[in-house]
Simulated assay, not measured.
Amino acid sequence: MSLTQKTPSGKRQQLIDKATELFSKEGYHAVGVDRIITESGVAKMTLYNHFASKSELVLAVLKQREESAADSLRAFVNGYEQPLERIKAVFLWHETWFKEATFCGCMFINAASEFPDHGDAIHRASAAQKEHVTALLGELLADMFEPAVAARLAAQLLILVDGATVTAQISGNPDSAMTAWDIARQLIAAQQSTLAGHVAP
């Protein structure tokens, strides 16, 4: 599994691809526009013809990253049929990602950290990505629980997914994904047990 997306060629795409590589490895504030221009081989005027500011470039990077990750994750999940296995697939997908040589953590978590103002467009884009992952988890859980329960569990599972991602980034150990899944499975089983206990004999 790779988050690398086949994208159109062209100067704009060269800039996005190089910026993605540098931002993911070194952070957003640490990488300047001049370095992106130099390493992408694109003229400064060309960059500003496509992006009015560095912030616009960051947003374009995050947009492409979200689309490629979402497509990859959904395709992976769709390889499974049973509801519980489809939820587990979310964690398996992350485990595979954590094992990639290019894994440097979540670009959205890192962006939210570097742009902490909740009103900032970059922070909002990062928050929106987390909302979309939560929505996917909610869809998967809705095959097992009523909407309110599915929504609550989805929020809990997102915390586990993101916690596993940060742990893998810090420790370099991809096992955090399956550790998170063990906890998620217990939460799901506990909810099933609770609901079964409320069923009239």
Rank of each mutant, 00 (worst) to 15 (best):
V77R: 04
E26T: 08
R86C: 00
Q14Y: 10
S171C: 06
Q156D: 14
H50Y: 11
K11F: 05
Q192Y: 02
D182Q: 14
G163V: 09
Y80I: 03
A200M: 06
T20A: 12
K88S: 11
D17C: 13
G172H: 04
S55Q: 13
I159C: 13
I109D: 02
A127M: 13
I183Q: 11
R12Y: 01
T179R: 12
M144Y: 10
G197P: 12
D71Q: 15
W93A: 02
L15C: 00
D117N: 14
T165C: 08
L153A: 02
C106E: 06
L84V: 13
S126T: 04
F145E: 03
H123R: 06
S171H: 06
K130S: 15
R65V: 14
D182V: 12
H118I: 04
L158E: 09
T96W: 14
V58Q: 02
H198Q: 12
A112T: 05
F98L: 00
L92S: 10
K18F: 08
A111R: 07
K18V: 15
N49W: 13
E95W: 14
G10H: 02
E56Y: 02
A184S: 03
Q191M: 07
R124M: 11
M45N: 15
E39T: 00
S53V: 08
I188M: 14
T4M: 10
A60E: 03
S53N: 00
G32D: 00
S113L: 15
A60R: 01
K44W: 05
V42L: 07
E21V: 06
I183Y: 12
E21G: 12
R35W: 01
S53T: 10
S68M: 00
I37Q: 11
T134P: 01
M144E: 11
F115G: 08
R152L: 13
Y28L: 12
A69N: 14
